[in-house]
Nucleic acid binder design. Structure first.
Length: 468
DNA sequence: CCTACCCGTGTG
DNA sequence: CACACGGGTAGG
């Protein structure tokens, strides 16, 4: 057995903060984004105190030392840029607010993968300086997608790569990260190594950095991992992948901002790192990376087509006046519209089916769908959709001021349909009269531009099967 | 000194 | 043997 190593003159290990929550990443990210959004803009000291308190409240953190809490606070933020600094103040970043409000983790990870690069502001300035002096200039997610696309075209079959191949043939090789070796040439190397039966150092601490990026790409639904521990292009996400292959021209380039790398100082790098946070929060059109719920639920292209024809979103959209086909919110609404019609038929009132209507958003009456009970009284439904590749506790959602006051005035006629879309499954939880439940202490609500709701499924909310 | 990514090493 | 705690350590 022979080990493949990057020739030492080309070796440069790429690094980023190690997340301390990989097993629980979706829950931690939703929790962090929600808590940070709830804290709002505060003086640094107060912000940190509030944030520390929130981190300690996270399950399992009560007994952790202050040192560990500090590490959670700074490392997660360094990697995901959840907090922006404004003089003596800290405030939630755009991405944090988006995630807290929309709870679209798949879209969040697509945006993360799209903007992530080396060098980057997640590194300590002196480490980043080292990267700059070495001329590192590397966007891992675009590169991996290009490589797999190229390899599939060449081989004529589905192609996957492993964490160790990504580490030793891509991430840690300056010929890729500095010199921009073509994906085609890199694939030639990987294939040659396979033919020669070369092994790689695959110890956890060696391959974990490239491995993290591959895992984040799975969270973004760009790649799928198979039981052979290799990562493949997700065929149902071709539109999003095309964006990675043809990126916009507004991505952050340290080298554009630097006159001369040789005389670059630490404090100059620090200034650039501050710009990194705002770059990482670049505003993007709502439809830039819309999560295609059906692409998330489907495992294969044929399954995707089947679902698409079954649900016939286009017809629902045409009839119901949905503004866009894109956001998970609108797709969630059309799924529930379909669900309500089927429910009335099942419960013996097919004559009421035609009364189930989507309410165009411009009316802003505080709910999405007008439906009926079998006794013909109104059922006003607000749909709250979360998407994630793996299941997570979905007991949090956000109600706007409008929605909260509609819930307050409609009382038991107001329903929140909590929809959790994960890879391969859809879960639905129905919460009746959220304001009433709040007053009874069955559900907690914290004001933030409306209300951040946390419900306990044992106290309120009934799990139902989504009718398709 | 303190802060904040860095990362050795214990654990399950 | 992968993961994450909490000490390490460089810079402020």
């Amino acid at each position: 057995m022979t080990l493949y190593n990057v020739p030492s003159k080309h070796y440069f290990r790429l690094h980023h903060p190690r997340p301390r929550f990989k097993n629980d990443i979706e829950n931690v990210l939703i929790y962090f984004a929600s808590e940070i959004a709830a804290i709002g803009r505060k003086r640094i000291r107060d912000f940190v105190l509030d944030f520390d308190f929130a981190i300690k409240k996270y399950p399992g953190n009560l007994t952790k030392t202050q040192k560990t809490i500090n590490n959670w606070r700074t490392e997660i933020d360094a990697l995901f840029s959840f907090i922006e600094r404004e003089g003596d103040y800290l405030k939630p970043s755009k991405r944090a607010i988006e995630l807290a409000t929309n709870q679209d983790l798949v879209k969040f990870f697509k945006l993360f993968c799209y903007h992530f690069q080396y060098p980057g502001g997640f590194l300590k300035p002196h480490v980043n300086l080292e990267y700059l002096r070495n001329g590192i200039n590397f966007r891992p997610c675009s590169y991996i997608l290009e490589l797999l696309t190229e390899a599939e075209a060449q081989e004529g079959v589905r192609v996957g790569i492993s964490k160790s191949e990504a580490t030793h043939c891509i991430f840690n090789d300056l010929r890729v990260t500095r010199d921009g070796r073509t994906p085609k040439a890199t694939w030639r190397l990987i294939r040659k190594n396979r033919q020669m039966d070369l092994e790689y150092d695959w110890r956890g601490d060696v391959i974990r950095y490239a491995g993290d990026i591959l895992d984040y790409m799975v969270q973004a639904n760009l790649l799928v991992s198979r039981p052979n521990h290799k990562y493949y292009i997700n065929q149902t996400e071709s539109i999003a992948i095309r964006r990675f292959l043809n990126p916009t021209n507004d991505l952050f380039d340290y080298y554009n901002e630097i006159a001369d790398v040789a005389t670059l100082t630490l404090s100059e790098v620090k200034e650039l790192d501050a710009e990194w946070v705002s770059y990482f929060n670049t505003p993007r059109d709502e439809g830039f990376f819309d999560t295609d719920i059906l692409a998330l639920v489907a495992d294969t292209t044929s399954q995707y087509q089947e679902l698409k024809s079954l649900i016939d979103l286009d017809r629902i959209i045409a009839e119901g006046g949905l503004s866009s086909t894109g956001s998970i919110g609108s797709i969630g609404e059309s799924l529930i519209l379909n669900h309500e019609k089927k429910r009335l038929v099942q419960e013996g009132r097919p004559d009421l089916e035609h009364l189930v209507k989507l309410i165009p958003t411009q009316y802003a009456i505080g709910y999405d769908i007008n439906s009926r009970e079998i006794n013909e009284t109104h059922r006003n439904i607000e749909v709250k959709t979360t998407s994630s590749t793996t299941p997570l506790a979905f007991t949090r959602f956000h109600l706007t001021p409008n929605e909260w006051s509609a819930a307050d005035s409609n009382k038991e006629r107001y329903f929140v349909y909590r929809l959790m879309v994960t890879k391969g499954s859809i879960k639905l939880c129905v919460i009746q009269d959220p304001v009433g439940n709040y007053k009874n202490g069955n559900l907690s609500a914290i004001p933030r531009n409306g209300m951040d709701i946390i419900f306990d499924p044992n106290k309120c909310g009934i799990e139902e099967t989504l009718l398709i």
